[in-house]
Each structure stands twice: as C-alpha cells, then as structure tokens.
Amino acid sequence: MGWLSESLNSSIGKKFVMAVTGICLILFLIVHLAGNLTLFAGAEAFNAYVHTLEPFKPIIRVIEVILALVFVFHIVNGVRLWIANRQARPERYAVNAASKNSSYFSRTMLSTGSIVFIFLILHLSSFWATFNFQGHPETGEFEFFEIVVYFFSMPWYAVFYIIAMVLLGFHLNHGFQSAFQTFGWNNSKYFPVIEKIGQIYSVVMAVGFGSMPVYFLFFYGGN
C-alpha cells in the first residue's frame, strides 16, 4: 500500500483527503440538522425523536467512531496542509492585497475551522456527554428537551453557539464548492450550480443550527 500513502501525502492527495472528509461531514450535518429541527415542535416531539434513535444505539456507536475518524483526518490533514503552505512562502509581502484577488471565506479556513473545533469540544462535552451518559446536569434525569433548555439558557453558551454557527457557515461556503473543484468536477455547465447549492447549503446550516440557541435564549420563556 506504499502507493496509497504516497499518493495521499502528495499536494493533490492532501486536497483529496480534505475534500472526501469534508463531504462526509457535509452529509452528516444534513442528518443532524433534520433531527434537531424537532426542537421547534416542542418537548414531546424532540424527546420522541431521541427515543426513536434508542434501538439504533449500537449502530450509532459505530457511526460515531467513523465520524470521529473523519473529523481527525480532516483536522490533522488541514493543519498539516496549513503548516506546509506557510513554509512555501517563508518571507511575506510588505503589502497584503489578498482581498483584491480572493474571497474572505477562502482565506480564513484555518481560523473558522479552529473556532468550529473549539465549538465541537464544547458541544461534545455538554450535549453529547449529557444525552448519552450523564443526564441533566442538575437532576441527572434523561429529559432531553430540558437539557437543551438548561444549556441554551446560559447566555455565554448560547452566544458562543451562535458565533460558531456563523463561522461554520463561512467554512462550509468555501468548503462545499472547493471539494468539487478538488475532485475535478469543474466545468462551465455544472459548476455555477454547485456554487449556488453550496451557498444555499451553508446559509441553511448556519441559520438552522444558529436559530436553536437564538430561540431558547430569547423566545423560549416557558420555563
């Protein structure tokens, strides 16, 4: 398998790893958002949704391991790529005119990705840990909707979520079309459509996930 690691460590190979893992994460987000939108239908709908997943737990555990590996590859490879690319220009320009020839989103992938990574750690240590193992931080009960209310009623927590989701949107906006370009699927017929779909997708994800902390922080006054 020497040819495989050699190919994946080449400049184009590293791009390929970013694109494949990126597409996996893009697909994951769709499923994740679709399920979580039941939050807006109230406590019963959301708790029912979480309970439907219960019998599939063994499969979900396997998927989680795969997902974790995908995240690790995406992050490690992205950081490696960033370091190698920094080394390709040891001396910087006196004048930085990057805004004249490239988009803001495309130049900030490491920064937006890093903040989303911090978000991911926070997200796993709060929601994932409580939903799966610990239960409600105060009562220890597995009342899923109440757990969501608990976390999102903390203003710093909700505000960080909102910021992270906007930056996730930035990250996805570049990443989506970038993956297709990397696979070589760029022609004048389809690519403008792919770019449009990517823009719509990133807005839907940012607004969809971002609306949850907004809703619980400002509009959910029932508790």
Partner: peptide, 27 residues
C-alpha cells in the same frame, strides 16, 4: 505549496488561465 482553491491565481494571471485546468489535473 498545495492549492486551497482561493482562485487568487486565476484572478492575477495575465493570460486569464482558468482554474478548470487545476480540476482537470486533479482528475
């Protein structure tokens, strides 16, 4: 370095060479 698809190259190329060529090379 490796390409991160910022497309700055295409914008600055005096001959307007398209990044579609990079897609072709990747493929």
């Amino acid at each position: 370095g490796a390409c991160t698809n910022t497309y700055a190259c295409e914008a600055e190329c005096p001959k307007g060479i398209s990044v579609k060529n990079i897609a072709q090379m990747n493929r």
